[in-house]
Design a protein around this nucleic acid. Structure first.
Lengths: 122, 122
DNA sequence: CCGCCTTTTAGGATTCATTCCTAATTTATT
DNA sequence: AATAAATTAGGAATGAATCCTAAAAGGCGG
């Protein structure tokens, strides 16, 4: 566990925001100006593979990273891309499990809306 | 409506596969060798904006295009990326509508599994 | 069918997120 | 502290997608 990996991990764990790699890079460089962009990407990938954090693919935008490791749906603003965590209601995917035979290994559920800030602008 | 746009549209409508832009480009060039890659991307974007087809963003892979315009969930093989359409059970998202106040503008639901071909290999 | 205006195309350059490369440094181990 | 293994900085490379421009095609009114 290197200083740079620790820093990246801490930054993600410190706040509920779903940041992009670039945002994490900028934040981290405020504390460690020599940090390389590639190091951020490599460690994010590593943390995801270890199951410590989650990667959130965003349509037509860079991926975001989520400190919450348990699977859950997301509410995404279709204008600005802001992301909020949602709670998965019990048994919501049951109809699919019944149809497909329980061999679902994961899911990705995004709901789109206009966040209050973007609604006001429009 | 140009020959190239018609060709791209026809190729998507002709088969249920969820192809990438590159696959569509290859198929189209078999019939029209002078077709430019940019023309494929531009027309796919155009067809999506018109609501004629749907764009499916795929994790760590190029986007795929779906001839079915009505919103619906997808079953995705986490190994090879093959995509199948699913039927959305009535009222599945109701719990969220109740919680969030009906202002959901769209959704994206992907279920991941291993397709039979990839299961056999593993 | 003809000219005129608008849209679209081919082809290549460009962008942007992300990955890869290598020598130098850091971390972990003995 | 010495050595082996892993990681870093920095920049080059990749790949999907977009953008640019001059040339070609569509589409219309006559």
């Amino acid at each position: 566990m290197t200083r740079q990996r620790q820093l990246i991990f801490d930054l993600i764990m410190a706040a509920p925001e779903h940041r992009t790699a670039e945002e994490i890079y900028d934040l981290a460089r405020a504390e460690m100006p020599s940090l390389a962009r590639g190091t951020v990407y490599r460690n994010l990938g590593l943390l995801v593979r270890e199951g410590q954090i989650r990667k959130l693919e965003m349509p037509d935008a860079p991926a975001r990273y989520d400190r919450e490791r348990r699977p859950h749906p997301h509410l995404v603003c279709e204008r600005c891309g802001k992301v909020e965590d949602l709670v998965m209601p019990d048994g919501l995917l049951r109809p699919f499990a019944l149809e497909l035979g329980e061999d679902i290994t994961g899911y990705d559920l995004k709901l789109y809306h206009l966040c209050p800030v973007c609604r006001k602008k429009a």
